[in-house]
Design a protein around this nucleic acid. Structure first.
Lengths: 217, 217
DNA sequence: AACAGACCTGACCATTCAGTCAAGATTTTT
DNA sequence: AAAAATCTTGACTGAATGGTCAGGTCTGTT
C-alpha cells in the first residue's frame, strides 16, 4: 500500500491476483465462446492462458464459478453500453449512438457476445435473475421513452419492443455470426466495411421508424 | 412394395426405420439446441425419445454423425425457405414474403435455428463447406438481385450484403433469443404478437430501404 | 535470517460419458 | 416351420475430464 504507482510489473499482491484472474477470465471467455459451456474443458482454458490446470482451480474453485464470473463480466460491459442510450436526447441522436456503440461492441467483444448468446440460447441458467430484474427494468424504461417519441410524433407508431429486439439482433449478429459473415466476405471486415455496415444499419433502422437520418459522419 | 398405402402403423421395414430415425433426430435437435454439442449427452437424447442409448448407436454410429444429420436436415429447411425469396418479384413482395417466411421458421423451428446458430458460432466445423458453396452462391445471386433493384431506382442505394444480414439477424433473433424475449414478455408470444412483430419487422426494413410498404394483411 | 502466508503445480482420484458387445426378440424370407 | 436377417437392449469398457491434494516455491514481514 506504500507507493501505489511504480514498477507496474510487480505490483501489490492484490494487483497481481487481479491480473492473473483477468488473464484466466480472458482465456475462459474465448474458450467458452468457441466451445460452449459443455464443450469447454478446464485444460483448454489452462492451455489458452499458459497456466497449469490446477492453478485455475486455485483462483476459481470450479468450472461453473469461472463461467459465472465470465458471464457477469460480460453483463457489466453490456450495461455500460446500455448507458449510451440517452433517454434525454432526440430519437435520432439516441438511437444512432446506441446502435453505433453496439456495433462497436460486436467488433471488440466478439467472444463476450457469443458467450452471452450461448447463455441465453441454453435457457439462461446463470443470468435468469439479471434478465428478470436489471434487463427488464432497463428495457421497460427505454420502451417508455420510445413510446414518448411516438406520442410526440417524432417517430412512426410501432411497438417499441420489436424495435429494441431489431436493434439487439442486428448489431449482435455481427459478433455471433462473425464466422458466417467472414466466410461470405473472404475474411474479416475491414475498417471501411465496419463503418459502412454501421452506417447502413443506422440508416435502415432510423428511416424504418420514420426518421430522416442526418449525415453519418 | 405390394400395397403402398394401408395400415400406416406397421409400414415397411424402410418406413419404420425412417420413422425411428426421425424420432431420434427430433429429440437430438432439441437436446443439441438446449445443451450445445459438447453439453449434449447421448443418454439425454435417448431419454428424450424414450429409447435405450444403445439403440441410438444402432441407427447413428456415433454422436458426431448424429449431429451432422441434425444439421443437414436444418440446412434443408433453410434452403426451402430461401426459395421464398422470389427473384422475379418486386422488392416489396419478395422481401415481405421472405421476411414473413423466416419469422414463421423462427416460430416453428426454434430448435433447428438454435442448432444452426450454435454451429456457426463455434466456427461451423460441420457446415463450413455449405457456407462456402451453397450459401455463398445463394447470397451472391440475391445480392445481385437487390443491386438490380437499386440500379433501377426501386430501393434506396445501400450495400445489399448488410441488408441480407439485417434480415437474417432480425428474424433469427426470435428463435435464438426466444428465452430472453419470453422472459421480458412474461411468457411466449401469442398469435397476435407474432403477427405484430412480423409486420413491424417488415415495416421497419422495407421503409428502411425506401419502400412504402403496402398494407400488411 | 527466520517465519508466515500466499501462490504454484505434478500427480492422482472419482465420475461421467461415448461407444461396444453379446445375447435375445422380432420380423421377413425360404 | 426353419433359417436368416434385422432390430433391441442391459451390461460393460476405455478414455476424458472436473476436481483434489500434498508438497514445493516465492514474497513480504518481523
Amino acid at each position: 500500500m506504500g507507493q501505489t504507482e511504480g514498477g507496474e510489473k510487480p505490483g501489490t499482491r492484490a494487483e497481481m491476483r487481479e491480473e492473473t484472474e483477468r488473464l484466466i477470465l480472458d482465456a475462459a471467455e474465448e474458450v467458452f465462446a468457441e466451445s460452449g459451456f459443455g464443450g469447454a474443458t478446464m485444460q483448454a482454458i489452462a492451455d489458452a492462458c499458459g497456466l497449469p490446470k490446477a492453478n485455475l482451480h486455485y483462483y476459481f474453485s470450479n468450472k461453473e464459478k469461472l463461467y459465472r464470473r465470465v458471464v457477469e463480466r460480460i453483463f457489466t460491459i453490456w450495461l455500460e453500453a446500455a448507458g449510451s442510450f440517452e433517454t434525454s436526447a432526440t430519437p435520432d441522436v439516441a438511437l444512432r449512438r446506441y446502435i453505433t456503440r453496439k456495433m462497436q461492441l460486436s467488433r471488440e467483444h466478439r467472444f463476450g457476445s457469443k458467450v452471452w448468446a450461448n447463455e441465453v440460447m441454453h435457457g439462461a441458467p446463470i443470468i435468469q435473475d439479471y434478465l428478470e430484474t436489471t434487463l427488464r427494468r432497463w428495457t421497460e424504461t427505454r420502451i417508455a421513452v420510445i413510446q414518448g417519441w411516438i406520442d410526440a410524433g417524432h417517430i412512426r407508431p410501432i411497438n417499441p419492443r420489436w424495435l429494441m429486439y431489431t436493434i439487439w439482433a442486428t448489431t449482435q449478429h455481427y459478433a455471433d455470426f462473425a464466422h458466417q459473415i467472414e466466410t461470405l466476405n473472404d475474411g474479416p471486415l475491414d475498417e471501411a466495411q465496419w463503418q459502412d455496415a454501421t452506417e447502413t444499419v443506422c440508416g435502415i433502422l432510423l428511416r424504418g421508424i420514420g426518421i430522416d437520418p442526418g449525415t453519418g459522419a
